[in-house]
Amino acid sequence: MTAPLPRASRPVGGGPLATGATVLRAGVQTTVQDAGRRVRALGVPAGGAADPVARRLANALVGNAPDAAGLEVTLGGPTVLFHEAALVSLCGAPFDATLDGAPLPLWRAAQVQAGQTLTVGGTARGLRAFLAVRGGLHGHEVFGSRATDLRAGFGGVQGRALRPGDHLTWAPLPAQAARRAFIAPDLRTPTGPHHELRVLGTGDLTPDLRDSLLARPFTVSPQADRMGARLTESVAAPRDPARPSVPNVPGLLQLPPDGRPILLLPDAGTHGGYPTPLVVITADLPRLGQLRPGDTLTLREVTREDANAAHLAQERALRQAEWMLRQ
């Protein structure tokens, strides 16, 4: 937490059209995202890339800080014409991507020349990927973050998903050759179609809820966006209309009166009044960003020690990869 709130709003950077890149096709929902903001106390959601492992590794591959802004692509990606050379990398779900028609591999840095067109197509598994550009994308900065908040309409490019004709720019950094580094497959966020999410119980977890939530597979419903992933199956939900609103945290499983659980993603509201019997452990939060409608998932209860060990192991591996890419 920062004592003085960061300066709220900064204008979008820009430049003559011979620089940067132009969006030719926008994709299903392509937004500028970074590591998000920390002003929930003002009612402002965190935001930020839904798969933070993809964000960190994509940024590390092009020599950016881990929280630099890039494009989060969803289900079907954009087509972008580059007016100047750039070093890019795409990490996340296994999207088909091409550079002037030639396959562009994920999980490595690639040099784009001025005049080339980058196309991110669809993905057979998972939902999202992060496209990093060396230097970090410009965007409307709000409370220290360029993350697009689609509901409140700020951040990124005019607070909305990309549209054809949008102009993207990024901060100039000295050119760097594409570095090769092996990114272990088990460091990559799993992309389904079946997911196992490790969870911890909260004070709302009754024996009945434990039985009904933990012992069965769930299906991700079509209502899956940056606010939350709704599940299709319902469980008997406790009713308490007088329940006070309390702060939400990432990965919370919310149980509305209809009993269909919602797993909260980065754009979820800051507070909620529904029972929240389970929380996904920190190490598995990136998996929430890859939940695709139709995927199945099971929730497995672990201990706090398990959760801490999983977080430490993941963080160690990520930092090692980031360190190797800096060398």
Binding site: M1, R38, R40, A41, P244, S245, V246, P247, V249, T270, H271, I281, T282, R304, A307, N308, H311, L312, E315
Partner: peptide, 20 residues
Amino acid sequence: GVQEAVPALDLLTLLLAAPT
């Protein structure tokens, strides 16, 4: 160790920098 403090009525939720 505290990244963010989020108030509600008679409570405060502290988001930690690290689970440990």
